[in-house]
Design a protein around this nucleic acid. Structure first.
Lengths: 149, 149
DNA sequence: TGACTCATGTCAGTAGTCTGACATAGGGTG
DNA sequence: CACCCTATGTCAGACTACTGACATGAGTCA
């Protein structure tokens, strides 16, 4: 296959690099969360609930980038183990607002320390300007993929 | 939870944004590859083989960001269906060099067109300078996560 | 009011990926 | 040579997330 036939040159593709970075971040997070018996999705769910208490199953799913079916399975486990609570009946519609229990908050606190250290490490070699450049670039990519989809 | 207790502010976290961008890219790729009966890993494998013929199972796994066990399952399917070929016995050591068949190349050609359109769309609103800024930023993040890990 | 559309919660089945484990080949190094 | 360490290919089981499907509630509009 000659050079002009190559569709996506993986050495210079931003898409490939994006996946590589995301994969490295995920691996690093899994590494520090595993000793706490927590997966990335598990952690994401708790972190979302800490910042926006009362989020529904579907909202949590979108925030953690999984389907609402997957999040539902996770929430049932978290509820059974006492990390979150949901009302028996929906206050309005079918939406069940979810909240962290004290136990959930304690569990999250340890995980947050671990995950924060990973993010700090990832941004170690970058200046503030480079970080905001990266922020804008990622925002632009997301916007383009969503709008023109 | 008051402001200073928040470990990772998801609205400003580069890690979260990275995952969001990667998730949007993956979803867009799955959308265009599904009509071709191809998953992202499936496509990645063929694209890697087109650019570096003779890659082994383990090398392909690293390049597609999955375990060598997962790649092995995929390769067995691709081999059975005639998209790739591997020698019966390893020329040296246990490493089995894999190559695309003409059928594999034809299948890849269609997928490449689809995936290229996604990448073009993603980079639509960015200048050349912004793209190289993003490239450097992502490289830096990957480097930091790997080295200090 | 009734019909239509959309979002949500949930159950069931499927598919993709992972971890664990084993045997084997090659490169040092004593 | 013997030993150790690493990397590879592969099998098996478990887990996670996905697609498909259904019922329900809210909003819209004729």
């Amino acid at each position: 296959m000659s050079q002009h036939d190559i569709g996506i040159d993986l050495d210079t593709s931003l898409g490939y690099l994006l996946k590589e970075a995301s994969s490295a971040l995920r691996a690093a997070m899994e590494e520090v969360l595993r000793p706490l018996g927590m997966t990335v999705t598990h952690y994401s769910c708790l972190e979302l609930l800490a910042q926006r208490p009362g989020m529904s199953n579907s909202e949590l799913a979108r925030g953690a980038f999984v389907t609402r079916q997957s999040m539902n399975v996770l929430l049932q486990t978290l509820e059974r183990d006492g990390y979150v609570v949901r009302p028996e009946q929906a206050p309005v519609g079918k939406v069940l607002p979810t909240r962290l229990t004290p136990r959930g908050r304690r569990s999250l606190a340890k995980a947050t320390i671990a995950v924060r250290s990973v993010e700090v490490r990832m941004l170690g070699g970058m200046t503030e300007a480079e970080r905001s450049d990266a922020f804008r670039a990622l925002r632009s990519m997301i916007q383009s993929l969503r709008d023109d989809g």
